[in-house]
């Protein structure tokens, strides 16, 4: 539609066009770079494995059968989900008090705290992961210090295991938990706690029954963000997990790039995405806020 004809178009149609135009860039971006690639992956996951080529002739469900018949891969998915769950839980517990201080604390703390919270994001992901290997390795800073002061005899297993991956992921994903939590806490009127206490609730009860449920939108957003990011993290798990512990994302990349099995890698990627999505949907349903729905 040309500019001139848009100008004379009747008001109602222009009104309906407005939102469409505004969401168009995002919609196009999503369609071209998310939906189409996903469809491509879906198609690829049903292709036959190739000999010397990324994929072969014809279609098959063999890739999925291979996954479900091999406990090794199922355990790997479970492991990946466990790491995601741990990251999310730790970020929530560690992040909440920080978000609280940022939202309710003194303005001076807020400025400094904000910078500190965002600081993990200022360092590139590869450098940061190498940094963690320096700290966590058997010969790393932590183990050497502890050995030198005589607290431990042999090195603690901090790397090449789930613990190391969780430590490094929590470090970088913490801001994604803290920021939505902070916004949610800021949205809760402090006089609600006062009201709860005037009705006979202790500070703790007032927090548990009033403030915490009202922070739920932020908790939801933060948990989903951190969980999804942990499932799909690649660089950190591959550097810190090494060959010993592999998350699903690492295995997928191995299949696609190292061993060149595109259909197999696609099937693994889809299984991980669908499992993750199901968990997110379940979580969102369990934490659904009836009062939010009633607000309309």
């Amino acid at each position: 539609m040309s500019a001139a004809s848009a100008a004379v178009a009747p008001a109602p149609s222009r009104l309906r066009l407005g939102p469409l135009v505004l969401i168009a860039p995002a919609a196009i971006l999503l369609a071209v770079f998310l939906v189409i690639p996903y469809l491509n992956i879906l198609l690829m996951s049903f292709r036959a494995p190739g000999q010397g080529t990324p994929y072969g002739e014809g279609f098959t469900i063999a890739n999925y059968l291979r996954f479900f018949s091999d406990g090794f891969y199922i355990r790997q998915v479970a492991n990946t989900l466990w790491i995601g769950f741990l990251c999310t839980a730790i970020c929530l517990v560690v992040g909440f008090p920080v978000a609280w201080q940022l939202a309710r604390g003194s303005p001076r703390f807020r400025a400094i705290g904000y910078g500190l919270v965002l600081s993990p994001l200022l360092v590139g992901i590869v450098i940061r992961s190498y940094g963690w290997t320096i700290l966590l390795g058997n010969n790393g800073l932590i183990n050497r210090t502890l050995t030198n002061i005589g607290l431990i005899e042999g090195p603690l297993p901090l790397m090449y295991n789930a613990l190391g991956i969780v430590i490094a992921l929590v470090h970088v994903f913490l801001p994604f938990m803290i920021l939505p939590l902070m916004a949610a806490i800021q949205g809760v009127d402090p006089s609600l706690e006062t009201a709860a206490r005037s009705l006979g609730a202790s500070r703790l009860t007032a927090f548990r029954r009033v403030t915490l449920p009202l922070c739920m939108p932020g908790i939801q957003a933060g948990c989903i963000l951190v969980f999804v990011l942990s499932l799909s993290a690649y660089v950190t798990p591959s550097l810190i997990g090494g060959l010993r512990v592999k998350t699903m994302a690492v295995t997928v990349v191995d299949a696609l790039i190292d061993t060149f099995q595109w259909p197999w890698g696609s099937a693994l990627a889809l299984i991980l995405s669908v499992t993750g999505a199901l968990i997110v949907v379940l979580f969102a349903r369990l934490t659904r806020m009836k009062w939010k729905v009633a607000r309309t």
Binding site: D189, S191, L192, T194, A195, P213, L214
Partner: peptide, 11 residues
């Protein structure tokens, strides 16, 4: 206690 902004629990 009754507050100026009512302070009803929205949830």
């Amino acid at each position: 206690m009754v507050f100026q902004n009512y302070a009803l629990f929205p949830h």
